[in-house]
């Protein structure tokens, strides 16, 4: 169990995070520069917050009122970096072995070889990191982190520098690690699909604050804020005005009846929620100005005379695609859209 409640003044904004993580993996999702990495660094102890409190499994790691701030060495928290951070002048074996100083000298090498086997690194014992591919380097870093026997795992965008294929392989490897691991883990990412695959819980960070924190299924069902909707990949986000019990979407010329619409500032309209017919609850007309084909679906770019924003609608391949430049009626149902708070 990890409890974090810290503030730290940064150049662009003030970091002010407050969350708890049990033994389920938690993803911190946010755009770059939203304070995710700094949060991890403060938990690991390599950066110091201005004030607050961090408690891991009952032990106070940091408490500004009591003047407690354990060194990163004493915290025993593993941190995995995007650029792997392997020691360049040490071989793979030496890199992993450096983390095993708590194991008796005699047993150390056998222990390291065992870990290397687990991460399919056999044969690379005497190789230097610069001779390895990105995927191999990250495997070494992962092995090295686990060799130190950490109480908490922190991942700082560990796959961002890898291409899609390697990314999938490594994310599978991390998923296996997390399954065997019985402590908490925090996974920082800006890729929602990746976060969804690895973490049962997702917290959204915006300008140094956590604005949404819920389990992954309900996050995808109702993202709550504009930032969250963007991060889960909602294609159409339309700002709205509210009036008593109705939400006015002027871009579509539509008024949606909705209770408790006080702090709603936008609606999210997933591209897949738009039907190319008039069977839905709410209808609008538009010109198809562009048709984009991709392996699994086709995206229609819709333009309306009275709106400068394009709307994206996606159809699974195989369905009949309307002609370009045709003016068509589209529709959607209220249950498929998101009502969103927050600002752009």
């Amino acid at each position: 169990m990890l409890e974090v409640n810290i503030t730290k003044k940064l150049k662009a904004f003030t970091l002010d995070v407050n969350f708890k993580a049990d033994n389920n993996a938690l993803a911190l999702l946010g755009q770059s520069g939203s304070g995710k990495s700094m949060t991890l660094k403060c938990i690991a102890g390599v950066e110091k917050p201005d004030s607050g409190r961090i408690v891991l499994d009952g032990e106070v790691l940091y408490d500004s009122t009591q003047g407690i701030c354990l060194s990163p060495q004493k915290r025993r928290i593993g941190l995995l970096f995007q650029n792997y951070a392997l020691f360049p002048m040490m071989t793979v074996l030496q890199n992993i072995m450096s983390a095993c100083h708590q194991i008796p000298r005699k047993a150390r090498k056998a222990h390291v070889l065992d870990i290397m086997k687990k991460f399919s690194l056999e044969g690379f014992e005497n190789t230097y990191p610069n001779k390895l591919s990105g995927g191999q380097q990250q495997r070494v870093a992962l092995a090295r982190m686990l060799a130190a026997n950490p109480r908490l795992l922190l991942f700082d965008e560990p796959f961002s520098a890898l291409d899609t294929n390697l990314r999938r392989q490594l994310s599978q490897m991390v998923a296996d690690v997390l399954e065997d691991y019985d402590g908490s883990a925090i996974f920082v990412s800006h890729d929602c699909a990746e976060a969804f695959r690895l973490c049962p819980e997702i917290a959204i960070m915006e300008n140094g604050k956590i604005t949404v924190h819920k389990d992954r299924i309900s996050l995808f069902k109702s993202p709550e804020t504009i930032a969250a909707a963007k991060l889960i990949g909602c294609e159409n986000i339309l700002t709205v005005r509210t009036q008593e019990e109705s939400v006015i979407v002027s871009n579509l010329g539509i008024i949606i009846n909705n209770e408790n619409s006080d702090d709603i500032t936008a609606i999210g309209l997933p591209a897949t929620a738009i039907h190319v017919d008039s069977n839905g609850e709410y209808k609008f007309n538009g010109n198809i100005v562009k048709i984009i084909k991709s392996p699994y679906d086709t995206t229609l770019v819709i333009n309306m005379d009275y709106s400068k924003y394009d709307i994206f609608c996606s159809l699974p391949n195989g369905e009949q695609i309307p002609e370009i430049n045709s003016n068509i009626t589209f529709s959607f149902d209220k249950e498929d859209i998101f009502f969103l708070k927050g600002s752009n």
Binding site: R76, A85, P88, A148
Partner: peptide, 29 residues
């Protein structure tokens, strides 16, 4: 020098003196 190497060493429990002589100095050799 890449600061992440220092951070990695610290989170792995390596002493600052070890990190200086075994990681920072060889890298900046």
């Amino acid at each position: 020098f890449d600061k992440n190497l220092l951070y990695a060493g610290q989170t792995l429990g390596l002493s600052n003196i070890y990190i200086f002589w075994k990681v920072i100095m060889p890298t900046c050799k």
